[in-house]
Computed example of a mutant assay.
Amino acid sequence: MKKVSLALLSSFTAYSIFASAVGASSISDANISAEMLETRVEQLAQTDFNNYVSINEFESELSSFLNNVVLVKEYQYFTPEEVEKWEILSSNFQAIQSSIAPAQTASTASLNAAVNNTYPNLQRDIEGAIVTSKYGAVVLAGVYVATDRANEEQQVYKNRYGFTTTQENEVDAFRHFSWNYHLTDTITITRGAATFIADNHEFSAFGVRYAENNFPTATAATKLAQGIYYTNKVKGETNTASKFKSLFVNSNFMDFNNNEAGRAYESKGYKDNYEAFAAAKSNGHVTTSPSQWTSSKLSSRAYDIYSGAFKY
């Protein structure tokens, strides 16, 4: 087993330059994310890997295998050699997740219960494997920084304003807004990548349901492969407004809108995500209830955001 050297994390070079430039005294949102990212990258550097000399080698292998095998055919059509390769790759990916992944959220737990999930972190792992193969493990660490910050701040917001629930209301809107705000202020993640990551999250629920409902007794590696395949399949087939609107419901459309608002408002010069959210809410750019707008307006705005036709 080999440990990843920090020197081999070439994608972390940008962070090192940034940290030196801003200095330890800065308390900006970006620097908070940067400090949390540094901790996760240090955890990543201690990850034990089998079969790979460096994390860069693993990322390259994972990306190639997902693009050429997992995303194009279901697990039952893998060759014996591909099955063996996927077992190795998925095992090493789990090592990454064990090092840097946050605990599952309430929304993920709800989805798990809905499909009688025997793989409690399946949605997280579907999303994480796709992100790692496309952008690398350091970006995945940045995703988890943003996730932790948004989940913690959701509780602060809930308590501060006296809410009793966190689903399909203003607190839920704040969490989605903040997650995307922090995705964008985490220095390893561009706005384009943040959009991909947030959309990937919405579509991964289809992968979870497909894997759990159709392969309930399969191995973890099998379910992960099937979930990745189906997530990508559904997303690839969602290329018209009618298809998009038939897949999702108002609460999802609400999420697409609030995700985009968070990404947009990160660059508008507000002190932090709380101030930015208040401004977006005042400007009518966040939806705090699935019934705040008409279904037609909400679904159309969500599709325009997804298709790239609309940005705040």
Score class of each variant (00 low, 15 high):
G162W: 04
L62Y: 06
V83E: 15
F58N: 06
Q154L: 15
S99V: 02
S90C: 02
A129D: 06
W86I: 00
S60M: 11
K85A: 10
N67S: 14
E127I: 14
D148E: 12
E74C: 05
K85D: 05
N68W: 03
S64W: 08
I96T: 05
N67A: 10
E152T: 14
N68H: 09
V70I: 15
F58L: 12
L140D: 00
E57P: 07
G162S: 06
L62W: 06
V70L: 14
Q154V: 07
N56S: 13
Y52K: 06
F65G: 00
A95H: 15
I130E: 10
Y144C: 02
Q76A: 12
L122Q: 06
Y52R: 08
V72A: 04
W86R: 02
V70Y: 09
E81V: 11
K73W: 14
L62E: 05
K158Q: 11
Y77W: 10
Y157M: 09
V156R: 08
T79D: 08
A113P: 00
Y135I: 03
K73S: 06
S133M: 03
P120S: 13
Y135A: 03
T108S: 06
Q97T: 10
L71Q: 14
S133K: 00
N117Q: 12
Q104F: 08
I96M: 11
N117M: 08
A113D: 11
R160H: 07
L71S: 10
L111Q: 10
A137C: 04
E152V: 08
S107V: 07
Q154H: 10
L140Q: 00
E61T: 09
S110F: 07
F78Y: 15
F58P: 02
L111M: 14
